[in-house]
Write a protein that binds this DNA or RNA. Structure first.
Lengths: 207, 207
DNA sequence: GCAGGAATCAAACGATCGTTTGAGGATACG
DNA sequence: CGTATCCTCAAACGATCGTTTGATTCCTGC
């Protein structure tokens, strides 16, 4: 499963190498020289294809988040507003697409990039993420509000923030948690999802 | 409450400015030239007093973590092994010292530095933190294990990791959550602690 | 098969990085 | 008063940063 093979177009090889090096060394820590060397392309290729390093960073996010948040929204649409929907259902709509990404290619490296973006309080990056994907969090929060009417607005924001913090932290470490070889991949993913959903649901619903 | 005034010794002025700039721009993003300019000291002072930038980073952690984890361990010793101790008590021993730090001076900036250290999967930094402060997490985990005997070792590690992730994430954002002016400082801190403890306890104890 | 845009290349740009140097100032002790 | 020690300072070190340039190669459409 190549993330940056010689047969791929230059743009995708750069994106693959960027994802890996941003995860490992941070946005400032990974230089364009390391990056283009790892991708096997010329140094000038980044500025030619993306314009600048900052635009490359945005493109790394866009490529993954478009897919991730698209799947999250699709899963949420199916259950939002329904009478039988539970907190666990909404959490599953949020978590399962992220787990699928984590176990696909070097998607788990992207989760580490995302965790870095959370830790960096960089205004430009936060604005980009908020502008492009803020509506996703608002939709999920609105559905939680419907299912947890006893919580004040303030309390709800608190708990949703704690849940996203825990999940981002946990999923950024998935590269290290290896499943036992006798458990099939999808079964392992299902167990992980159950762990996370149970934990988060208990926190959200706590009295 | 100056963090880097002209009257303070050079070493402390550097540590104060370093904490702020590392929180804002990361370890690689903050340069020694910015840092020494903000502290009002000569560029060479960092290498004279600390030896290198990496040793300065370690000293930034040491100064705060010695105090923070000292208070955590003291609070834990008082209740560890007792018959009446609850999960909430242990969580309070972990959380309250961190909240006290967050509301004291620019201690909240340090919590952001700590959140960065979590997100960076830098081996050198992780080894330093593990070598010097790993015993704290082991002690707390052991006490959780005593109070939650129904959890498997694997499940317990999972949940403790989720809790620390949520708390680190939450407390790194405390600079932005301002208390209402009609609520006294210590009352606000107490309320925040209750929020965090309730959330974490529900997650840990979830069936 | 040839013109022309797309893509790649080596090389260089000025800026900034962490670190080192050696001279000079401050301070305490004989 | 002199001297030894701690500290500060401006300046420079080589390395590396993101970006730009201009020539060269590749590929496509006529």
């Amino acid at each position: 499963m190549p993330v940056s093979s010689a047969s791929m177009p230059t743009k995708e090889r750069i994106l693959g190498a960027a994802e890996e090096l941003f995860a490992r060394h941070g946005f400032e820590g990974a230089s364009l020289r390391q990056l283009t060397a790892a991708a096997g392309v010329n140094l000038a290729a980044v500025n030619y294809h993306f314009g600048s390093k900052d635009r490359l960073i945005e493109e790394v996010f866009r490529r993954r988040l478009d897919q991730l948040n698209g799947r999250r929204m699709a899963a949420l649409q199916k259950i939002a507003g329904d009478a039988g929907t539970t907190v666990e259902d909404v959490l599953a709509a949020f978590i399962v697409p992220a787990l699928e990404l984590s176990h696909d290619g070097n998607g788990s490296l992207f989760m580490r990039v995302l965790a870095r973006a959370f830790a960096e309080h960089d205004d430009t990056l936060r604005k980009f993420l908020s502008d492009n994907y803020g509506h996703v969090m608002r939709q999920f929060t609105a559905e939680f509000a419907r299912l947890l009417p006893q919580l004040s607005k303030e309390e709800l924001y608190w708990r949703v923030d704690l849940v996203t913090g825990a999940l981002t932290h946990a999923m950024s470490g998935f590269g290290m948690i290896q499943r036992k070889s006798d458990v099939p991949e999808d079964r392992h993913r299902e167990q992980t999802a159950q762990h996370l959903i149970r934990f988060a649901a208990s926190g959200l619903k706590s009295p």
